[in-house]
Design a protein around this nucleic acid. Structure first.
Length: 512
RNA sequence: CGGGGCGUGGCGCAGUCCGGUUAGCGCGCUUGAUUUGGGUUCAAGAGGUCGGUGGUUCAAAUCCACUCGCCCCGACCA
């Protein structure tokens, strides 16, 4: 009946038809407004949808033809490169060298460390055919490189003089994930793995904590993300580690994201791969090894920590474009004078070593403002005819939206102003993220309190480091034990589950 | 892997219930004008084997089966 009526509307004239078209036209107007102004789902409406929208609109990544894999586009990759370069510099400063290890790992290697193979076998991709022939021994696509690197270290380390071995490798690994999300959990992900071997456990522990500190510094100094360093609970440890440490960050939806890990591997891999050295006392000893990693997941953290309804807000130090110049003009005469100024300013900013872009596209200024805001560019310089006449410029900062973040400044000293502003934007983003996080972490002393707090934030609760405790809390609240923060007040409390006396609080929250 | 939702030009959707002419709309794209200090406006264009496969039918975007993918919620993870 209804379809018939519509058909009649389409074909026919008369009152019904007119009403149909009127209604249709009205609907179109709404659609237009919607699609124009809301390319990005508001963060408050649907955080997950917002996250995906931002990645698409900021031109960071695209879905690959293979399930669970992404293509990182130039804008996203540039961000990754900047992050990587900062980290790499820090690794070099702490005495590490880069090297490369194979993508393929003999299955037997993974099986040498019992916990390790147990932990990783569910998510292994395994190559069984090569060159058209069935392989004698299947090759795992590396899910991480402890085993293959361990096997090499066993060959390289003979004497105490060979220690420590301090190597890092930038690569990608594959883990067969059930549920994926761009940057946060993809089947293949890019990261770095540091692998070190030491003569003593003390030295290894020093390394583990040093690198955890490097990650924490990188997160706050370069990514403007405050993190909580701590020790993972027994149930959250890396497969094959004696101890795992992590940095945990709070995202804009108050969920936790593990942004980096550092493992004390004890002598587990040394034993499995016979990484031994002859000590000064002429006895053969097992090494102590560590590993630590940080992945492109950190980009997800940057998006989810700083982003707003307009899109990305990038920390200046890692932003692919730190300053964008938008020229404003009405006609060719204005255009040439505006561009003359804009190009001069562009050169000055570039000469100062900043990543600057002059947007010479044939679009309206308003369009460009929104476009670059979506991409998270920290500072925008506007040059129009009035500015040319007044030797001035408009400066807008991405961390403060709208007119409040706009100022009008003289062209003289503009570069210095921009440099100062970039630092301010960084500080402001870090400050905003820290304030948000701190406002949403609460100390609790009972299980009831924890249940309430983790509904909308993190809870710091005294608990025993016991897998059963973690499991119970997780099952009943969906919140997980993120870590036992390194920095916390000393004291003695009762575990909120077991009632046993404990000396530490753990951080609980719903996590990615 | 379980529960739910969705696959229709690059993006967002209508049409599917109840099968029937050349499958529409907005954004985006191209061209030309117009505009330009916060997503200009107008005109003319280009662009779609309706996720895929098989079936039912004179006829399938529409019905049926299978399959693939995406999103959300649970079990596992950087």
């Amino acid at each position: 009946m209804h379809a018939l009526a519509c058909k009649r509307c389409r074909q026919g004239s008369g009152p019904m038809g007119d009403r149909y078209w009127q209604q249709y036209a009205h609907q179109s107007q709404i659609d237009k407004q919607k699609s124009k102004m809301a390319k990005i789902t508001p963060r408050s409406k649907d955080f997950s949808e917002w996250y995906l929208d931002v990645i698409r609109e900021a031109d960071m990544a695209d879905y690959a033809p293979v399930r669970g894999c992404i293509v990182v586009k130039p804008y996203g990759w540039s961000l990754y490169e900047n992050m990587r370069d900062f980290l790499d510099r820090r690794f070099k400063e702490t005495g590490h060298s880069n090297a490369a290890f194979p993508l393929f790992i003999p299955m037997s290697f993974l099986q040498k460390e019992a916990q390790h193979v147990k932990g990783f076998s569910p998510e292994l991709a395994v190559v069984t055919i090569g060159g058209g022939e069935t392989l004698e021994e299947p090759l795992a696509v590396r899910p991480t490189s402890e085993t293959i690197i361990g096997s090499m270290y066993a060959q390289w380390v003979k004497s105490y003089r060979d220690l420590p071995v301090l190597i890092n490798t930038w690569n990608s690994v594959v883990r067969w994930e059930k549920r994926t999300k761009p940057f946060l959990r993809t089947m293949e992900f890019y990261w770095q793995e540091g692998h070190t071997a030491h003569a003593t456990h003390d030295e290894a522990m020093e390394e583990v904590l040093r690198m955890l500190g490097v990650y924490a510094d990188h997160a706050s100094e370069e990514c403007a993300i405050p993190v909580i360093q701590g020790r993972k609970s027994i149930s959250e440890r890396f497969a094959g580690a004696d101890n795992t440490f992590s940095i945990e960050a709070m995202m804009g939806d108050k969920k936790a994201l593990q942004a980096g890990t550092s493992h004390d591997l004890g002598q587990n891999f040394a034993r499995a791969f016979e990484i031994k050295y002859l000590d000064r006392d002429n006895t053969e000893k097992l090494c102590w090894t560590t590993s630590w990693g940080m992945s492109w997941r950190m980009l997800g953290a940057v998006i989810m920590t700083h982003g707003d309804d307009q899109g990305l807000r990038l920390p200046p130090k890692i932003a692919p474009v730190q300053v964008v110049i938008v020229p404003i003009y009405k006609n060719d005469t204005e255009k040439s004078s505006v561009f003359e100024t804009a190009e001069r300013i562009y050169k000055e900013i570039k000469a100062a070593g900043l990543r600057v872009k002059l947007d010479d596209r044939e679009e309206t200024p308003g369009f460009k403002f929104n476009d670059w805001e979506m991409r998270g560019v920290p500072v925008r310089v506007e040059i129009g005819p009035k500015d040319v006449a007044n030797r001035a410029a408009a400066l807008a900062r991405r961390d403060i939206p709208g007119k409040a973040g706009k100022s009008f400044v003289p062209q003289d000293g503009l570069v210095q102003r921009v440099q100062v502003l970039l630092v301010e934007v960084h500080n402001s983003l870090l400050q905003q993220a820290t304030a948000f996080r701190d406002a949403n972490i609460h100390e609790v002393n009972t299980y009831e309190e924890l249940k309430e707090v983790v509904e909308d934030g993190f809870a710091l609760a005294p608990v025993a480091d016991d897998p059963e405790v973690d499991a119970k809390i997780k099952e009943e609240t969906r919140a997980t034990n993120r870590n036992f923060p390194t920095q916390q007040a000393a004291g003695e409390w009762k575990c909120i589950i077991t009632g046993k006396p404990v000396r530490e609080r753990a951080l609980f929250g719903k996590a990615y």
